[in-house]
Design a protein around this nucleic acid. Structure first.
Lengths: 225, 225
DNA sequence: GCATTCATTAATGCATACGCAAATAAATGC
DNA sequence: GCATTTATTTGCGTATGCATTAATGAATGC
């Protein structure tokens, strides 16, 4: 057996990751309804694991279980975007502060630095996909350095909720040149153990991102992603 | 029918609220394991609604589903306490800032003021239960004024997770006299629309509370509540 | 023509059943 | 007596069936 990684996933788990994938891929678009039995057929399993997965996804804010109407894929409105970015702002800047206080070595921060480098390169190459990927990596790594599992898990939830919105705005938003100056400033503050600055700069960074995105959504009338 | 409030709760919902109650009441103590079938018998229903409720409670961080071992009620360690209070600190001070920016009238803030009054009275009366209740009310109201559903829902989750710990520490902690000065300062800042001060003061308040509580837990060797 | 009631349909909530795999106990070999 | 294998138990994952109840459409009265 060349494939060492045994793929013994339970049907519930498969349902969970499949539904997630379908939601992110837009196969299940925001605002649409889908019957449990239909999804069960689609994934070739019974309603039971589908229901369990749906329950979890409901708790994670990706969909809603409405009796008799099926599961409703939750669309994201500008107001949701505001809420989500406020949460991300608060938690990530908390993480930045913690990271700075922890006194990480330069080696510990190499992943962060690499993400910044990649973003620079991506901007130079005009490769927005690569930029988005590196940007995510930066934020995720920052959260990881913050060393708080609950913060990390909420961060992931919020990111999942805005994933579709980010994808659609990626190509209509201004080129993220200013962003990288922010990232560098945060990185520098963490490296120097300046917790207050790290927090403040990251806060400003996210707040700015929030404003840009919400303006963009409203300008383009993207009220339900 | 004199009882107007129809109690047509589904079994899942009953399971959910019953399990929650049992966890908070200590009937299901932190760290203990319980089989699905046992809980089903106990609540007089089949495993299906129990599993659904357990799934939800797992997502909310109150328990863990471990195959063959049953559901494990998650104990809270000092490290968990640190994580939770960091989240609460970040989100509540965000709420305080938002509340200040929203420019609420004095009337809008009456609930907040009332909670502060009640805390004063409770401290004077040496009524710790009443103080804890009013303190909760203050924080919950602050979050409500922050006007962010996601923040509110995470706030509730985190509060649930520390509920048992708070109850046990309530009678061994120092009398919360300083607390109220903080609350007043936050209230004042919000009333005056001073967002920066509101945020900073609330941050300090929560950070202080975190330190007190963690010290207390460690001093008394309360490692698994 | 419109509203109201009734019948029908259909999706869910939940109980139940069962196969599988993990944990435990028993049995066998050394 | 100890280790290793085999048998047994047991709890879970999941499929299935059914009663309940909301939603839809038909029928009736005004």
């Amino acid at each position: 057996m060349k494939d060492a990684a045994q793929k013994s996933l339970s049907n519930s788990q498969r349902a969970l990751q499949e539904l997630r994938r379908m939601i992110f891929a837009g196969e299940l678009a925001g605002g649409t309804d889908h019957l449990e039995s239909e999804l069960a057929d689609r994934l070739g399993m019974s309603r039971t694991p589908i229901r369990e997965a749906a329950l979890t996804l409901e708790n994670q804010g990706l969909l809603e279980l409405r009796p008799r109407k099926g599961v409703r894929i939750l669309p994201v409105s500008p107001s949701d975007m505001r809420e989500i970015y406020e949460v991300l702002t608060a938690l990530e800047s908390q993480a930045a502060e913690q990271a700075a206080q922890r006194g990480y070595s330069e080696a510990d921060l190499s992943e962060l630095a690499a993400a910044i480098e990649d973003m620079d390169r991506a901007v130079a190459d005009q490769d927005l996909e690569a930029w988005a990927e590196a940007d995510n990596r930066f934020h995720a790594e920052l959260v990881r350095l913050g060393d708080n599992n609950r913060v990390a898990s909420i961060f992931n939830m919020m990111n999942d909720q805005v994933r579709r919105a980010r994808m659609t705005t990626l190509y209509i938003r201004p080129v993220p040149t200013k962003s990288n100056a922010d990232h560098r400033a945060v990185y520098e503050a963490i490296r120097q153990g300046d917790a207050e600055t790290a927090r403040r700069r990251h806060r400003e960074h996210r707040q700015h991102a929030k404003e840009i995105l919400i303006e963009l959504l409203e300008k383009h009338r993207l009220n339900r992603l």
